[in-house]
Structures are given as C-alpha cells and as structure tokens.
Amino acid sequence: MKETTYIKRPNRTLFIYALIYLAFLYIPVLFLPLFSFNDSIYIAFPFVGFTTKWYSQMYHNEPMFAALLNSIRVGGATSVIATLLGVFGAKAVTRYRMPGKPVAMFIIMLPLVIPGIIMGVALLIVVSRSGIPLSLYTVTLGHILVCVPFAMATLIPRFEGFDRSMEEAAADLGENAWWTFWRVTFPIVFPGILASLLLCFTISFDEFIMAFFLAGTDPTLPIYIFSQLRFPAKLPGVLAMGALILVVSFFVVVFSQWLRLRNSNDITSSGI
C-alpha cells in the first residue's frame, strides 16, 4: 500500500545529484593511486608512462617501515584501551539509571567538540612540564582521548539493543557477574566490540594533529608522510604509500561499518 505514495516515487534529479556528490567525495582521493603509476617525479598531466618503480622503491624504505610499525603499535594499544574504556562506559550508561548521567556523558564526549590542536598543545604542556619525555606512549595517551567518544558511540547502540533478561537468566542460573559478562554479554556485544576496535585503530592510524605535538623522535606514519611532503623528489613515493594505505583502510572500514550496522535494524540510533 505504501508503494503507491509519492514518497516512494523515484526522484531522478536527486539521484543525479547524489551521483555527483559521490564523485566529489571519491575522485579527489583517486588521484593518489592514479599518479602513483606515473613515470615522472612531477605530479601532472599528461602521463609520461606506466611504472611500478615507486612501489618497488618503497620496499627498501627503512624509515617508512619503522614509522608504519610505530603507527601499528600505537593504533593497537589505543584501540584496545579505548574500546575497554568504551565497554565499561557503554555498559554503565545503558544498564543503570544514574542521576547526572548527561553530565558524565558530556565529559566523556567532550573531545569531540574541542579542536584537536587545543587538546594536543594542552597535553604537550602537561607532559613536558612534568618531565615525561615525548614518546609513542604520549601519542597513545592522546589517541585514547580522541577514540573513547567514538568507541562509546559505537558500543552504546549495541548495549541498548541488548535484552537484559538474558543476563538475569544467567544470574538466576547461578553464574556470577564476571562469568555472566563473559558467557552472555560479551558474545552478544562482540560485533560492536570488534567494530569499535577497528574504528579506533583506523582513527589512531590516521591521526595527525595530536601525534604531531606528542610524538618524540619516533614518528608515526602520518608524521612521516607530512615530513616527506616538503621534498618534491619524495612525492611519488608518498603517492604509492598513500595509495596502499587507502586500499587497506577502505577494506578495514567497510568491514567494520558492515559489522556495526549489519544487525542493528534501526540504523538511525547508531549516530556517528
């Protein structure tokens, strides 16, 4: 019956607009892989020739691999800790009625509404005043702050769609709190946890502003890329690496989004 209302009528103008919009989103990004196969250190049309040498040169780039490893370490630690904090937080705010919950949520979500540079310099000041050397640990701390709101936003819809009577049944059958969590709660919210891990890793892996202030002598990958952008001769190498990063992160994100949205009937409740 609904099929006949005007709401369901296809709208060609809007469809074309949507395609143009997607082109605006995607075409700029596709220039990176496109030019990464161009046999010239100048990034310009017309193409000189096809080459894969920028990719093979990358293979021997030791500093880049070191930076990549640093980013993976930071991203791994960040995603695990931020997701753990997110699980505690999401469980608490969805399971219990608490006075002052909006205030608590406001504090936890605060990093979303503070410009990154301000959090970056504030952390830099406190870290250097207390004599802690800048390192990958300080970068990780900064990234945890950035990621916890995202972890919460990913996990809360999962915990909200959760049927509490299952936990109560487990408790009635004699499971204690921890075993109830591991054997009942955890398997049910696991897709959310996995999505949160992947999203936090992606955010940390790409994060530049905080890392720029908080990294010591060990650069993360974005910092390494930024340092290379100043040298025109290094640009094709950056393009090749960028193209690879794009391809990998596309797959990771598609997978994590799919995990996150797959079973939630109500997509609207998942927010950002």
Binding site: P28, F205, D206, F208, L246, S249, Q257
Partner: peptide, 23 residues
C-alpha cells in the same frame, strides 16, 4: 549508501588534503 557516503571520512585525512594539493 551509508557506507559509501562515510567511507572517505575514515581514510587518511592527511592524504585527502594532499590529494587536493595535487588537484
């Protein structure tokens, strides 16, 4: 569609800015 719209957001910010420099 939702994944398509939000996908570029999750890819490297630095690289997206850099691609505009190329363009």
């Amino acid at each position: 569609w939702i994944i398509l719209m939000t996908l570029p957001f999750w890819t490297s910010y630095l690289l997206r800015v850099f691609s505009w420099k190329i363009i």
